[in-house]
């Protein structure tokens, strides 16, 4: 456990040195938040209610999304793991007494923690200053949001870990990023809040892991009934299910990859 907390803190420290980039990130997230919010406000001024979402819901989701998008890294950056697999340096990582998955999870959670505190929270604050956001009113509700964000970060990590792990079997993982870099934002509710899609499509997308990174946390923040089971508990259960399933898959594939490296010598 000591090792993991050390790796976690190292991840946190590493990102805390990128101060200018963090400031620029807040700027970029806020600009995109404002643009998307303006578009949706224009839309909802014509159609005040779409599939249970109103203007305030939509604008809130836009800023929750901008606050989370860097934390869950849905648009990247990829884990450095990919580079280590390509260069073969991963061989030494596999020799460490710490499991590969755990090591990278701890590192990435350090990054995610820094990102949510110093990039996510300021972005959300800017959103509340500029627009009327519907934020939780009770401590219990905030606790649910916090749990949801943590699970979203784990899912974000697990997906990127799997993308990079594919590098053991295919030569170029950039192709994977080219595809998931597009599917991800659409399915997660980054491009548009999922309620704007036809209800059947939205329900399918809501069940996929990408939605658990943005759409589900947004709906938990808003306390929506469209969540699985109609409540925050259902949403958290879905997220926890995905987090567990993806981590398990990651662990399984790591062993397979390790065998491959050991047998074939990389």
């Amino acid at each position: 456990m000591r090792v993991y907390s050390a790796v976690y803190i190292a991840g946190l420290r590493r990102y805390s040195t990128y101060r200018a980039a963090t400031l620029a990130g807040i700027l970029t997230n806020s600009v995109f938040g404002c643009i998307n919010a303006a578009v949706l406000l224009a839309l909802f001024s014509v159609r005040p209610l779409i599939n249970g979402y109103d203007a305030a819901d939509a604008v809130t989701q836009v800023f929750v999304c901008q606050a989370l998008v860097a934390t869950v890294a849905i648009l990247g950056p990829p884990l450095d793991l990919g580079e280590r697999i390509r260069s073969g340096a991963v061989g030494t990582d596999l020799l460490r007494p710490v499991p590969l998955l755990g090591w990278w999870l701890a590192e990435d959670m350090g990054r995610a923690t820094f990102s949510i505190v110093f990039r996510g929270v300021p972005t959300l604050l800017i959103g509340t200053v500029l627009f009327d956001l519907l934020l939780p009113g009770t401590a219990g509700h905030w606790a649910a949001v916090l749990a949801s964000v943590a699970l979203a970060a784990v899912i974000g990590f697990a997906l990127r870990y799997l993308y990079e792990l594919a590098g053991f079997w295919i030569l170029d993982t950039r192709g994977i990023w080219a595809v998931v870099g597009l599917v991800g934002p659409v399915a997660a509710g980054v491009l548009l809040p999922l309620p704007l899609f036809p209800p059947g499509v939205a329900d399918v997308l809501r069940a996929l892991p990408w939605a658990s990174m943005i759409q589900i946390p947004a709906e938990i923040t808003l306390g929506k009934e469209s969540l699985p089971g109609g409540s925050a508990a259902g949403g958290l259960a879905l997220q926890a299910g995905w987090a567990a399933a993806l981590l398990l898959l990651g662990a399984r594939l790591t062993s397979a990859a390790t065998r491959k490296v050991v047998v074939q010598g990389g």
């Binding site: 578009v39 949706l40 224009a42 839309l43 014509v46 159609r47 779409i50 548009l192 704007l196 899609f197």
Partner: peptide, 9 residues
Amino acid sequence: VVFRHAGAL
């Protein structure tokens, strides 16, 4: 999608 919902903006 946005224009389909709005009709016109």
